[in-house]
Design a protein around this nucleic acid. Sequence first.
DNA 1: TTACTAATGGAATTCCCATTCAATTAACAG
DNA 2: CTGTTAATTGAATGGGAATTCCATTAGTAA
Lengths: 195, 195
Amino acid sequence: MARPVEFDESKVLTSAMEQFWREGYEASSVQKLLDCTGINRGTLYNSFGDKNTLFKSCVDQYNRLVEKQIANSLKNEKLQAWDAIKAYFDEAVINVSNKRRSMGCLLANSLCESINYDRDMKKVVRASLAIIRKALVLRLKEAQKKGKVKKGISVEFAADVLMNSLHGVRVNSRDGKNAKQLNELIKHTINSLKK
Amino acid sequence: MARPVEFDESKVLTSAMEQFWREGYEASSVQKLLDCTGINRGTLYNSFGDKNTLFKSCVDQYNRLVEKQIANSLKNEKLQAWDAIKAYFDEAVINVSNKRRSMGCLLANSLCESINYDRDMKKVVRASLAIIRKALVLRLKEAQKKGKVKKGISVEFAADVLMNSLHGVRVNSRDGKNAKQLNELIKHTINSLKK
DNA sequence: TTACTAATGGAATTCCCATTCAATTAACAG
DNA sequence: CTGTTAATTGAATGGGAATTCCATTAGTAA
């Protein structure tokens, strides 16, 4: 009936996501978003709402990326618990060390930006982090059942330790540390929990 | 001879520092900086240069804060190496859990913001982080000499692990985690290095 | 072909941003 | 008191921000 869309929604969201990821919410002007996505002003407002709404959609896009990584690692049934956990962190490190070198993590970056004070946004970001933590907890429970978690360490605490190290690695990635260095840090953290 | 200054430079810098710390560089408009410092537009430009220069002065102010914390802990000669290291992290956690609750770390926040792509700014932020790391290394060397570092762990790597955990804790602080939770994370990290 | 619908393109609007500047003020030296 | 100097004040400037709006375009159904 009407004129068909010309843009590829997923590609637009990925480009916008990378812009927000690299420079943050405040520094990503609508003009920059138009430039990097190739869409037009009217299209952005017609099809993606305003900048704030677009940002939330970008976090959703980021979630899809994270869920793919989780599917490849934590939810890979061929892997033992700790191997799966290590595999997830490998994915996470690779993700910030190639094309997306020194971009850190969209979620951690957002926590550190003023956008964090927008309640709605905080909810969205926290929900995404909860997805990662939940997948870690599942595998940690498996590891504990098999007696492979150091005694005195609860599954919940181990998950906190891993998430803390993940955040640290992401900040360090923005400081320019390379994949090898980040991997060593992760390995150390895992060894501090593993029996 | 001339009219004397009416503002207290250190107070102005502290207020501006807290504004940048809370909301980041981009979201801190000159208007907000005037509101929180109480100084006037002209005064800001006359006495503190432009927004960019003011930000750098605020990082210097942050450094003075960090140096006080280091003097109280890492450079406290009454404390043994690991106690001094623990004391430093206690200071760091207290710092983000009272008035400055959930503000994280000005330096880590800046790394996660786009400001990170300003070369000059990055240099300033990195220099500040290097001060902390250097003070940690001194104490870690002491600990190692006394055989109190787990074997197979170099002083440099231990410093990286501590800095990584510190960054993680700061991101977690912005996510609203309380002092107790942050302390547990720090304790775990220290125990993973200590013999 | 024609009428209809929704996407597109970009000019226009409104607002807030950082920065400049000229007038005013306050202390002090003579 | 007076002239000098520098701090203070806030109006003015110019640019870029987010957003709105409407004329144009392109496909589809009749």
